[in-house]
Design a protein around this nucleic acid. Sequence first.
DNA 1: AACCTTTTCAACCGCATGTCT
DNA 2: GAGACATGCGGTTGAAAAGGT
Length: 303
Amino acid sequence: MDALWNGSSCDWPAPTVIISDDDAAAAELRRGPWTVDEDALLAAHVAAHGEGRWNELARDAGLRRTGKSCRLRWLNYLRPGVRRGGFTPREQLLILDLHSRWGNRWSKIAAHLPGRTDNEVKNYWRTRVQKHAKQLHCDVGSRRFHDAMRNLWMPRLIERIHADDSAAVAANATGDVSHFYSASPSHELSSSSQPAPAYRNAAPNGSCARAPSPDASCVTGPSSWSREASPASQFQSSGSTIAGPSTSTELCQNGCSSATSVDMFDESWSELLARANHDDTDFGLGETGDNWWGLEDIWEQPL
DNA sequence: AACCTTTTCAACCGCATGTCT
DNA sequence: GAGACATGCGGTTGAAAAGGT
């Protein structure tokens, strides 16, 4: 295989690779980071011809990329509504909850986080959550770690969510956040009356500035509130009275308007470590079944 | 300032599944 | 039904950025 760096108008060039001798003139495919020109080309062709048939699109657009690469670039970066930047506390809470239910079903989890991609969720889990499990000297699938999540991190997230809500209310001087905690599952992504999400301004400290992008903002297009129908009904609490959002969709919808993004682990970790390192602390939990830290349980806990 | 280590995340890979002929 | 091709998914990689010494 013959790889070489191919200069371009981008900040950094992408290498090209010869796939096989049989592919003759069309054999050179670019790999690595996408250039601004490539992004523009891809976006223009998707706008003109729609998504799908990626191999054909790549060929027609003159992009020396595989169809797979084009699809990935579009879905993870160029697609309208893609959000970038740190996860809000609500999003973090939702990820923890949904992962406890579904495991590494990243695309399924991401589907409940408007504008977030499976890649982002997956990266979050691997870099943040697994890192802290490692610090605890346990596996993310272990009871010990689940208990730590349930008793320290998730309550902290909820506290933070409440604090953010209160701050938002104070700022808006409306004095009413009851809609945030409505037990009704009617708050769906497709709501046409959804106000412009505040998350457009929520990207923390330039976290979206790394990759070459034609778009300086961290949202590449219109909000994706109505992007898809969400199976929110499966998250409704099972008849119990809960203090928080009744559905994950609701949780995320509200969370996406949160203006802050903080890794709550960082805030509570010294405490967590102190407790966890004190022999085999079990955090005083009894057996709660397979779903150790589902949202329904968390919301019912006194803070 | 220079070097080294760690963290982050975009992009790639292989495999599974779906769709078309 | 079989084969070819397209698409989607989850795991992994590697380079840039950030942090530490």
